[in-house]
């Protein structure tokens, strides 16, 4: 078990180094020039050259990578060429928006996915199962931006119940804040729920047909007890993996939902950074997102032994 934890923890280091190289090179090779973006098309060439020199963009790629890594080692992810705010300042402002959106969306997704996934699995090929599966396909197929715009049109323009976009910070009151997040959370959560529901249903179906469930039923255990204590716990393992991936995806910022609902989150921050070729911000944020993704997956992996005793005993993994 300890070996497993140490190995799993150490494996993160080369992954992160690989990510820094990849992130830096990808942004380096994107055609375009932040100096031209800032100065504009009408700026004389000497003005653009001056800005490039000022920002160190005229240095060789390995020198720039070296400076970037040295700064990261000191905890400095860089500063925007444009707003001159540090990456950490920008993230500090954008992350709470994305985090709140991710949590609320996940809540919406779980509220939809867990009951419908379980009921679908317990009553396969029933009307409910067919309906939930069909709804899942519709949810997967409907473009997020379309659903968002429809929600805005219905609840903001027609009914005037909720705002048509924009973020109200918590400092302005919880109710005000939640009103601004309900529609984006529904738009995003609906999409996320379809995948979760399908995984939970498939996992539950596998487990419910297993011998130990039949044994538990034969022993006379109540159906609810079999479902909750024996079936769900095992079905949760693949579900948790998908949930971890979904969490990482949501925390990385969802560009479309944030754009449609005008939320100042991580997705818009990184999109604008890429479009403006604000390399420092783009690389800094992508690195943070990738790191959080890796760490989340690490956390999920570390949760496996808790959920599955076989991992702890090394029976199925062979780590002990």
């Amino acid at each position: 078990m300890t070996r497993y934890l140490i190995w799993r923890g150490l494996s993160v280091i080369p992954t992160l180094i690989g990510i820094t190289i990849l992130v830096f090179l990808v942004t380096y090779f994107i055609p375009g020039d932040p100096a031209r973006v800032l100065a504009g098309a009408e700026a004389p060439p000497e003005v653009v050259a001056g800005l490039r020199h000022q920002w160190g963009l005229d240095r060789p790629v390995h020198v720039r990578y070296g400076f970037w890594m040295a700064n990261i080692a000191r905890g400095n992810l860089g500063e925007s060429y444009f707003s001159h705010q540090t990456v950490l300042q920008l993230v500090r402002r954008a992350f709470p928006v994305t985090f709140e959106l991710a949590m609320l969306s996940l809540l919406v997704a779980l509220l939809i996915a867990v009951p419908s996934g379980i009921v679908s699995a317990v009553r396969p090929r029933s009307w409910f199962d067919l309906g939930a599966t069909a709804a899942g396909f519709v949810g997967l197929s409907v473009p997020g931006f379309w659903l968002g715009i429809m929600l805005i049109y219905l609840f903001a323009v027609e009914l005037r119940w909720l705002p048509a976009g924009g973020f109200a910070p918590l400092a302005g009151g919880l109710a005000h804040n939640l009103r601004s997040m309900i529609l984006p959370a529904i738009a995003l959560g609906t999409f996320a729920s379809t995948q979760l529901m399908r995984y939970l249903r498939a996992g539950m179906l596998d487990v419910l047909n297993a011998d130990y469930i039949r044994t538990a039923r034969a022993k006379g255990l109540a159906a609810a007890m079999v479902l909750v204590r024996h079936a769900m716990r095992n079905a949760l393992i693949p579900f948790m993996t998908v949930l971890g991936v979904q969490m990482g995806y949501l925390l990385g910022g969802t560009v479309i939902t944030e754009s449609v609902f005008a939320l100042p989150g991580m997705g818009r921050l990184v999109l604008n950074a890429i479009l403006n070729r604000d390399y420092q911000v783009a690389t800094g944020i992508i690195l943070l997102i990738a790191t959080s993704f890796v760490l989340l997956n690490l956390a999920v992996d570390l949760l496996y032994p808790v959920l599955d005793p076989r991992v702890r005993l090394g029976r199925s993994t062979g780590w002990e």
Binding site: I149, A156, A164, G165, V260, A262
Partner: peptide, 14 residues
Amino acid sequence: TELQTRISQLLAGD
């Protein structure tokens, strides 16, 4: 950035 959101915000009085 989204045009339809901008117009909806105006129509909704936001």
